[in-house]
Simulated assay, not measured.
Amino acid sequence: MKNFFQGGFLAIFLSLFAPLSCFALDAVIYNENVLSQKVSDEINLIGKELYEKTGIFLALAVGNESSFESLAQKQKELPEPNILLILSKNSHKVDIIGSSETLSFFDKEAVLSPYAGTGTILPILASKKGDIYNAALLNGYGDIADRLAKYFNIKLESSIGNANRDTLNILRILLYGFICFALLYYTQRRMKKRYQNQVTKRRRRFG
């Protein structure tokens, strides 16, 4: 009788809390045929580790036809404390919302900055090259997770931030290097052409 009671109590306990645990581990709470399965899996992996180490549920809702307002309503279904990254293609809007205290744990404006040196979502969306939504949301979600990890002084094994930052830095170096090379080449060509014109004029003058 005692064993049955203990077993029954355990079953009831798990039935009550298992849905919350499973839900908390599923970071992508809504995906309207925008994210690939690979990117969803990677985001879920980061979200699971972050939740286990900080207790903060970092979620993502992305819609194709859904409005931003309808996606934002999904925050009410999340366990607290929470943060929700939202992108609506239909509304052409992206934002980060969260429970009262969580947004103070990181610089939201930096993540959403339109400048490539700071922002990790909008610069990719603005590029309009390649699979911008998967890249932007994975990059942005990873950036938020890394900022939260830094705030709580923990290490995320599933972090993609360092790899992304290194890739972006390499791309910036290559881009700036190409621009400098092009400017130098253009300047040299102009100087060479000017010198040749001066030589030609002198030859005509003394020829």
Rank of each mutant, 00 (worst) to 15 (best):
F23T: 07
C180G: 04
T200E: 14
I173G: 03
K93F: 10
I132C: 09
R165A: 11
K89G: 13
I86G: 02
E42I: 06
L168G: 09
D41Y: 07
N64F: 00
G130L: 00
G207W: 00
I83W: 13
S127K: 15
M191H: 07
Y185M: 02
K2S: 14
R172L: 08
N134F: 14
K201H: 01
I86S: 00
T54P: 04
L25T: 00
Q198L: 08
Y115I: 01
V111Q: 00
V111K: 10
G177A: 01
Y30L: 02
V199M: 12
C22K: 12
D146Y: 13
D143M: 06
K193M: 09
D146T: 12
I43Q: 06
E80F: 12
K76P: 04
L60V: 05
A145M: 05
E77A: 05
Q37L: 10
Y141G: 02
D26S: 04
L58V: 10
L87P: 02
S70T: 13
G177L: 02
I124S: 11
P79T: 05
A110Y: 12
S91L: 03
G142L: 00
K89H: 10
Q196D: 14
R194Q: 12
S158Q: 02
V199P: 05
L60Y: 11
A163F: 13
S67K: 00
E80P: 00
Q75L: 10
D131W: 04
R202I: 14
R189D: 14
F178R: 02
I12P: 11
I124W: 15
G98K: 01
I170C: 09
S70H: 07
K192E: 15
D26H: 04
D143L: 01
T118V: 10
T167D: 05
K2D: 08
Q198I: 12
L184D: 09
R204W: 00
F23S: 11
K201G: 01
L84M: 05
L87F: 15
K150A: 06
L58D: 11
N169A: 02
I97K: 01
F57C: 11
N3K: 15
S100Y: 13
T187I: 01
I97Y: 02
K38G: 14
N162S: 10
K76N: 10
S15N: 13
I144D: 08
K74P: 11
D143I: 00
Y195S: 15
K150S: 06
S67E: 05
Q6L: 13
T54E: 04
P79W: 08
F17Y: 03
Q196S: 14
N64R: 09
R165S: 07
S15D: 11
A182T: 09
N3R: 13
T167L: 12
L156D: 03
L168Y: 14
L137A: 13
K74Y: 14
P123G: 08
K128R: 14
Y186H: 04
A59Q: 06
F105H: 08
D131E: 03
G161L: 05
Q198H: 09
S104Q: 08
F181N: 02
L14V: 08
L25A: 07
S15T: 06
I29D: 09
P123I: 08
S15F: 05
T118W: 05
I12R: 13
P79L: 14
A72W: 04
F178Y: 08
R202E: 12
A72E: 15
G98W: 08
K38W: 12
R204T: 07
G130K: 10
Y115M: 03
